[in-house]
């Protein structure tokens, strides 16, 4: 089904096509703003070497409010139009880093639509 490009579907972490790495700069802003406290981030290393060791989103708790997408400074976390998330098992709704990478859309996603972003 066609949905608008602002649709709050599932969440995903697209990989930067130039560097092949995560866009996330591990600032923990999304983890802090989430009203349902369903994002869990852990990182290792210092400075440029810092890498994500854990990026989990409990999709069963998520209320699709979009605050995480809004606060992210690098648009590392995005909504995808896909919305059919039902499973037979709650464990499958715990999306880890791999799941979130896999969920990322293949085509470029509409960016910069958050016109009201506080600069």
């Amino acid at each position: 089904m066609d949905v608008s490009n602002r649709f709050h579907g599932l969440l995903a972490l697209p990989i930067d096509p130039e560097t092949g790495k995560d866009l996330c700069i591990i600032c923990f802003q999304c983890e802090r703003i989430c009203p349902d406290r369903c994002i869990h981030i852990e990182a290792e290393g210092k400075g440029k070497e810092r890498v994500l060791t854990r990026f989990d989103i409990e999709m069963d708790k998520c209320c699709y409010c979009g605050y995480c997408v809004e606060v992210c400074p690098t648009e590392a976390i995005v909504f995808v139009p896909h919305y059919e998330a039902s499973t037979y098992n709650r464990d499958q709704l715990l999306y880890n880093l791999d799941d979130l990478h896999r969920a990322a859309p293949k085509e470029p996603i509409a960016r910069g639509i958050i016109g009201g972003r506080v600069p």
């Binding site: 608008s4 602002r6 649709f7 709050h8 409010c65 979009g66 605050y67 639509i113 958050i114 009201g116």
Partner: peptide
């Protein structure tokens, strides 16, 4: 609604001091 807010029933569209997207 969906075209503007991204949601159909639950929008989280209003923000303190304005709205989220034009």
């Amino acid at each position: 609604f969906e075209k503007v807010t991204g949601g159909r029933l639950h929008h989280v569209y209003y923000r303190l001091g304005g709205v989220y997207a034009d």
